[in-house]
């Protein structure tokens, strides 16, 4: 790409120097972690990985969070259903469990949706293999509908969830 006059003029401007104090502070911080400075090199880690001595953890953990989301949804549904059929008096509680359990079983998932409310890019992080990864976070709201075919009752409930996605970055 041909560089324009403007680009040349911009490049000719040099950013201001960092202060000596910044250098000293970094020097102090890095000097205090001598043990960390002699950890295996990236090349060593890479060769170990290639030789099968290291196992790279899955970079994308979305599935785990998704499972957690559905587990949470199921747990919330169970609680809601049990609360729905729970009678307020203690005397009724003694007689009700069988009927409530039966009715709860009759509730079946009838539909769900998910609305993404917000997405955030947290930037780069390093995993335990020192591999840079981009961390993305999604906040969303799941809406579920369960129906009871025997009684026609419909149960709506919402589950907020947050998913964290780690995407490996290969910087050249």
């Amino acid at each position: 790409m041909n560089e324009s006059e403007l680009e040349k003029e911009l490049r000719a401007l040099r950013p201001t120097e960092a202060s000596l104090d910044l250098r000293k502070r970094i020097e102090t911080d890095l000097a205090g972690t001598g043990a960390e400075m002699v950890r295996p090199s990236a090349a060593d880690v890479a060769s170990s990985f290639a030789a099968g001595r290291l196992e790279r953890r899955p970079a994308v953990v979305f599935g785990w969070w998704r499972n957690l989301g559905w587990a949470s949804a199921g747990a919330a549904a169970a609680l809601l259903v049990s609360a729905f059929f729970r009678t307020p008096t203690s005397s009724a509680e003694v007689d009700a469990p069988t009927d409530a359990a039966t009715a709860a079983v009759q509730f079946q998932p009838a539909g769900s949706s998910r609305e993404v409310l917000d997405a955030q890019d947290d930037g780069l992080l390093y995993d335990e293999d020192q591999t840079p990864q981009r961390r993305l976070r999604f906040q969303s709201l799941e809406r579920h509908r369960w129906t009871n075919s025997a009684t026609g009752a419909v149960l709506h409930f919402e589950v907020p969830r947050e998913d964290t996605v780690l995407v490996p970055v290969a910087m050249q």
Binding site: A18, L30, M37, Y126, Q130
Partner: peptide, 14 residues
């Protein structure tokens, strides 16, 4: 810059 620089060099000393 200090935080980022120190974090980077702790993670990638080489």
């Amino acid at each position: 810059v200090q935080n980022a620089f120190v974090r980077f060099w702790r993670h990638q000393p080489d």
